[in-house]
Amino acid sequence: MIIKINTPIAQHIINDLNSGDYVELTGTIYTARDQAHKKLTDAILANKSLPVPVNSVLYYAGPSPARPGEVIGSCGPTTSARMDQFTPLLVENGFKVCIGKGLRNKNVLKAIKKNKGLYLSAFGGCGALYHNKILKAECIAYKDLLSEAIFKLYVENFPAVVAIDSKGNDIFTKEPL
């Protein structure tokens, strides 16, 4: 069964989702990968304003360029583990739902559990499939970073799997890999 959800995701919906659920998201999400995470972290630590509204869903992705007439190029998830060092601080500061691919470390798991957040694993390597689910894209910050900039995306029926739920269950560590 596929659970349809809208962003920003209401707290009672977050609470009801379980690790292993297949979901499809509709609404606005923001891309942020390595360098954007570093910059967001620096801004939070320096008490500066952020280019992304608090409570937004962060998507670890760096799209390929759009062909003329297209909204975006290929836009699948990148490896979440590289964001682990930044995620707990971002979760504590309101970014408690994130989407990437693969494993997270214990600190991320703890932060998500404590703040009743969510980590979704998107289908790694399926950038063309995600291209079809993105209806609008706008670069809103760090343009000089090219694909690593922050893009505001409007997505429809964006597929993912709940990897870490708000109770702290992790799909990847449930059984030995």
């Binding site: 992705a61 760096g62 799209p63 390929s64 062909r67 297209e70 190029g73 290929s74 836009c75 699948g76 990148t78 289908f123 390597g125 399926c126 950038g127 063309a128 499939l129 291209h131 079809n132 694909s147």
Partner: peptide, 15 residues
């Protein structure tokens, strides 16, 4: 994903 990449000439993976 592979079929979409072919149809739309969009990279199979963004990386």
């Amino acid at each position: 994903n592979a079929v979409t990449a072919q149809d739309k000439k969009v990279p199979y993976c963004q990386d």
